[in-house]
């Protein structure tokens, strides 16, 4: 799974794919490369915004764990699963 995640992050960062995604403050996501749109839940929106700013998975998990008062491992596992889901769409 770690190898899959590493490949995914490489793909998402390639050609600034991740940073080009447009995310509204209500969780609406538009992918200008494919023209597809999505809805993010709150934690999904936070996660993508952190990653767009270039933060690591670990740091993003720390932000979520602090905000929701959940264990760091829980946040990290969820973010990794989210990225795999994201990879199927983007």
């Amino acid at each position: 799974m770690q190898k899959q995640l590493a490949e995914l992050m490489t793909t998402l960062n390639k050609n600034q794919r991740l940073s080009k995604l447009a995310i509204s403050e209500k969780g609406f996501l538009f992918d200008p490369e494919t023209g597809q749109s999505f809805t993010l839940n709150y934690s999904g929106m936070q996660t993508l915004n952190h990653l767009k700013r270039g933060e690591s998975l670990e740091d993003t998990a720390k932000h979520l764990a602090d905000e929701f008062k959940i264990p760091h491992d829980t946040a990290l596992n969820s973010i990794e699963a989210f990225l795999i889901q994201l990879g199927r769409y983007i």
């Binding site: 749109s37 809805t39 993010l40 839940n41 934690s43 999904g44 979520l64 929701f68 769409y89």
Partner: peptide, 11 residues
């Protein structure tokens, strides 16, 4: 403040 794992839903 309630935790829900991150999720993306295509339109």
């Amino acid at each position: 403040g309630h935790w829900e794992p991150p999720y993306i839903q295509p339109h």
